[in-house]
Computed example of a mutant assay.
Amino acid sequence: MVRRIFDVPPHQIPTAENWFAFGSRTPRSPRRASSVALVHDCANGVETYLTYRPGGSPLGNVAFPGGSHEASDRATYQWFGPSLSQWSKRMDVLDQQLVQAYIVCAIRELFEETGILLAGTDEQSIVEMTDPDDWMSAREAIAVQDLSFDEFLRRRGLGLRTDLLRPVSHWLSPNFALRRFDTWYFAATVPTRQEPTLLRGKGKWARWNVAKQVLAGRESAALGDLVGQPNTVGLNLSQISYPAVELILEAMSDANGVVAYLSRSRALDLKHPDLLVRDGIHYLEVLGSMSAESSRPWQALAGH
């Protein structure tokens, strides 16, 4: 059993203090959510795409693209890649409709927030971004739910390339949090002829970051100052992010390239940070296996 300690983000400290002062109470019900870590290789190691999330997001103020489930995530989709039964076994979730919602939400939120679309017309193809303005308009419409994701794909004859996702981690927000997520994290590479961009009128900051460099400056305000938002400047990585993000960055940093990172087998046990108070200071404590090694490799489940 491994024990890790992280700072509580400043905006959550009042809530943590209240929870500790008045004793344990019934936690708020979590919303289901999905998040996707985009990765690619560079000269300094694995890079990943981090975004700024305003409003004290349960995913972290600086985190991977993602968000909560919507009703359309359970609609009927053309599906390429491992079957829902195979995904269910890999994620150890019996409810296959819930498994679908996690996967569809991941692909939908990735498209909304970055413009990266993991979809194609068959099991071998991947859509190309030939008209950036058309894609941006579609992203805006999907984000405000003027257009459902399933209808967007259907109009273009596209199916979900679920084989391009890898599940990497499963997290439940701390009990004291006012907004809680039950989040599955996935990883993916950027398809050829696609590039991530901020959602027009909504996105504030995003960029590729070398995992090793982010971790090297984790105790400093390097990343927070780079993001440049009022709730990131002067704060370290734990204070602007979430333990899930740090541990995923650590796995990226340890991997010898993107192929090694994506193909690595993983233990997908649920991680649930708990509140720890030491000398009057509040921390997040995470217990469990931090190893990415598992006896259940993804490749054994990815066949058709």
Results as ranks from 00 to 15, higher is better:
Gly120Gln: 00
Phe181Asp: 13
Glu195Ser: 15
Arg139Trp: 02
Asn175Gln: 11
Asn209Lys: 03
Trp79Leu: 10
Thr121Gly: 02
Lys202Met: 00
Phe80Tyr: 13
Thr189Lys: 14
Ala206Ser: 14
Val168Thr: 12
Thr130Arg: 10
Ala75Met: 11
Ile107Lys: 13
Arg156Ser: 03
Trp171Val: 13
Glu151Gln: 04
Ser173Ala: 13
Phe111Pro: 01
Gln78Pro: 00
Met91Cys: 13
Ser72Pro: 05
Leu165Thr: 06
Asp73Thr: 08
Arg193Tyr: 09
Ser173Val: 12
Arg161Asn: 08
Pro132Ile: 03
Gln97Tyr: 07
Ala141Lys: 02
Leu110Glu: 01
Ile116Ala: 00
Ala71Tyr: 00
Val144His: 01
Leu94Ser: 11
Gly157Cys: 04
Gln100Tyr: 06
Ser125Trp: 00
His170Thr: 10
Arg155Met: 15
Ser125Lys: 09
Met91Gly: 05
Cys105Met: 01
Gly115Ser: 10
Leu198Ile: 04
Arg90Ala: 14
Ile142Val: 13
Asn209Trp: 04
Arg90Trp: 12
Thr189His: 07
Met91Leu: 15
Leu110Trp: 02
Glu109Trp: 11
Ala106Ser: 12
Pro132Leu: 07
Ser148Val: 03
Trp184Pro: 01
Leu147Arg: 04
Ser169Ala: 15
Arg166Lys: 15
Asp92Leu: 13
Gly66Trp: 04
Ser169Met: 13
Leu158Gly: 08
Glu195Cys: 06
Tyr185Gln: 15
Ser85His: 10
Ala106Tyr: 07
Phe176Ala: 05
Ala75Trp: 04
Trp135Ala: 02
Gln145Ile: 02
Asn209Ile: 07
Phe64Asp: 03
Asp131Leu: 03
Phe176Gln: 08
Thr162Asn: 04
Asp133Phe: 08
Glu109His: 12
Gly67Asn: 01
Glu123Pro: 01
Ala187Ile: 03
Ile116Cys: 03
Ser137Lys: 05
Tyr185His: 15
Trp184Arg: 14
Val127Trp: 12
Gln194Val: 04
Trp87Asn: 13
Lys89Gln: 14
Leu147Thr: 14
Lys202Leu: 03
Trp79Thr: 10
Phe176Glu: 09
Ser125Gln: 05
Pro196Met: 08
Ala75Arg: 13
Thr162Ala: 13
Glu140Trp: 00
Val190Asp: 06
Ala119His: 14
Trp87Glu: 12
Leu198Pro: 08
Pro132His: 11
